[in-house]
Simulated assay, not measured.
Amino acid sequence: MYGQGMDAAPNPWFSWDYVERNWDEVSDRLVIHTTLTLQAVLIALAIAFPLAVLARRIPRLAGPITGVSGVLYTIPSFALFGLLAPFTGIGRTTVLIGLVAYALLVLVRNILVGLQGVDRDVIDAARGVGYSPCECSSPSSLPNALPSIIAGLRIATVSTVALVTVGVVVGYGGLGQLMFRGLQSDYRAQIMTATLLCLALALLLDLVLALAGRWATPWLRGRAS
């Protein structure tokens, strides 16, 4: 064990030497962590958007849709991955399904709130010029919904970055693998490197989404100024 006993080798929390010596593994885990996060959020968005549109068009379905996604969100991550493993195996697929399930609630609720905030007159006007119901509910046709949708994407993305680490329970946790091994061996540099990379990834993705949201809603910039 690192750091135990009077003659133990130095065990610093920060070590650039560790990063240099293990960069191949560190970068590989970072790529896995990033791709898992992006894939999970995109799949969740592809599922959440039509569900939110359906809930917007048929209000009596809003409760069941948000209720089911809420139930999925309340299941502890370790338990969910454990329940999925016998059916989907050990590895990426199990983690991805769990991440999508957790992102759904945030995305469905935020998209639904955004769509509900769109003035009915705008939708009626769009239908009057020939848009279909689906086209009337798209972000490009309903720009007023974009701020809420972007906010949901930011929350879902940052939380997914954190949840990927829990995938270590089924052997596919990205940077969580490094954290887990570091905790087992009391290797502080390994723990801190993985932790800082997770933090940096979350901040970077959140910044990208924030800038994308700012670019996509220029009327809000004008209003703020």
Rank of each mutant, 00 (worst) to 15 (best):
residue 140 S to N: 04
residue 108 V to Q: 14
residue 139 P to M: 07
residue 89 G to M: 08
residue 172 Y to D: 13
residue 137 S to A: 14
residue 134 C to L: 12
residue 121 D to S: 11
residue 143 P to V: 02
residue 106 V to D: 00
residue 110 N to E: 07
residue 167 G to L: 07
residue 157 T to M: 12
residue 106 V to L: 07
residue 130 G to H: 02
residue 123 I to D: 10
residue 120 R to V: 07
residue 144 N to H: 04
residue 107 L to Q: 13
residue 141 S to W: 07
residue 99 L to M: 11
residue 94 T to H: 14
residue 119 D to I: 00
residue 116 Q to V: 00
residue 161 V to I: 14
residue 157 T to Y: 08
residue 149 I to T: 10
residue 113 V to H: 02
residue 115 L to W: 09
residue 162 A to N: 14
residue 150 I to M: 14
residue 137 S to N: 13
residue 89 G to S: 06
residue 132 S to G: 04
residue 123 I to T: 13
residue 130 G to C: 00
residue 96 L to E: 06
residue 121 D to Q: 11
residue 123 I to E: 13
residue 137 S to Y: 10
residue 143 P to G: 03
residue 174 G to S: 07
residue 110 N to A: 04
residue 100 V to G: 09
residue 107 L to F: 07
residue 163 L to V: 10
residue 121 D to V: 06
residue 165 T to G: 03
residue 166 V to G: 02
residue 163 L to C: 05
residue 146 L to M: 14
residue 110 N to C: 09
residue 108 V to K: 11
residue 147 P to K: 12
residue 174 G to F: 07
residue 156 A to P: 12
residue 137 S to V: 04
residue 164 V to A: 07
residue 165 T to M: 06
residue 138 S to Y: 08
residue 167 G to M: 06
residue 112 L to C: 03
residue 164 V to C: 05
residue 95 V to Y: 06
residue 170 V to M: 10
residue 97 I to D: 08
residue 173 G to E: 06
residue 118 V to P: 05
residue 164 V to K: 11
residue 134 C to F: 14
residue 116 Q to N: 15
residue 126 A to N: 09
residue 132 S to H: 00
residue 158 V to R: 05
residue 98 G to R: 12
residue 166 V to K: 01
residue 110 N to G: 01
residue 118 V to H: 08
residue 85 A to L: 15
residue 110 N to L: 07
residue 90 I to Y: 15
residue 158 V to Y: 01
residue 173 G to R: 11
residue 148 S to Y: 14
residue 139 P to S: 09
residue 88 T to Q: 05
residue 100 V to A: 09
residue 135 E to G: 06
residue 160 T to G: 05
residue 131 Y to K: 05
residue 128 G to P: 04
residue 135 E to F: 00
residue 105 L to W: 13
residue 116 Q to W: 02
residue 119 D to F: 01
residue 94 T to N: 13
residue 126 A to C: 04
residue 131 Y to S: 11
residue 98 G to W: 09
residue 92 R to G: 01
residue 132 S to A: 03
residue 87 F to E: 12
residue 96 L to A: 06
residue 158 V to N: 04
residue 99 L to N: 07
residue 119 D to V: 00
residue 117 G to W: 13
residue 129 V to K: 01
residue 106 V to R: 00
residue 145 A to M: 12
residue 87 F to A: 15
residue 102 Y to D: 03
residue 90 I to N: 13
residue 102 Y to Q: 08
residue 101 A to D: 14
residue 144 N to G: 10
residue 127 R to F: 06
residue 172 Y to T: 12
residue 145 A to H: 02
residue 104 L to G: 09
residue 132 S to Q: 01
residue 127 R to T: 01
residue 134 C to K: 05
residue 90 I to V: 15
residue 93 T to Q: 10
residue 130 G to F: 02
residue 166 V to C: 04
residue 132 S to P: 00
residue 125 A to P: 08
residue 127 R to E: 09
residue 119 D to T: 02
residue 97 I to K: 12
residue 125 A to M: 10
residue 103 A to Y: 08
residue 171 G to K: 12
residue 119 D to E: 11
residue 101 A to V: 14
residue 117 G to H: 12
residue 162 A to H: 08
residue 139 P to L: 11
residue 85 A to S: 13
residue 134 C to T: 14
residue 149 I to D: 01
residue 128 G to Y: 03
residue 167 G to F: 08
residue 155 I to R: 01
residue 122 V to T: 14
residue 104 L to S: 08
residue 154 R to T: 06
residue 88 T to H: 09
residue 145 A to F: 01
residue 85 A to E: 15
residue 115 L to I: 08
residue 131 Y to M: 15
residue 106 V to C: 01
residue 97 I to V: 15
residue 123 I to Y: 08
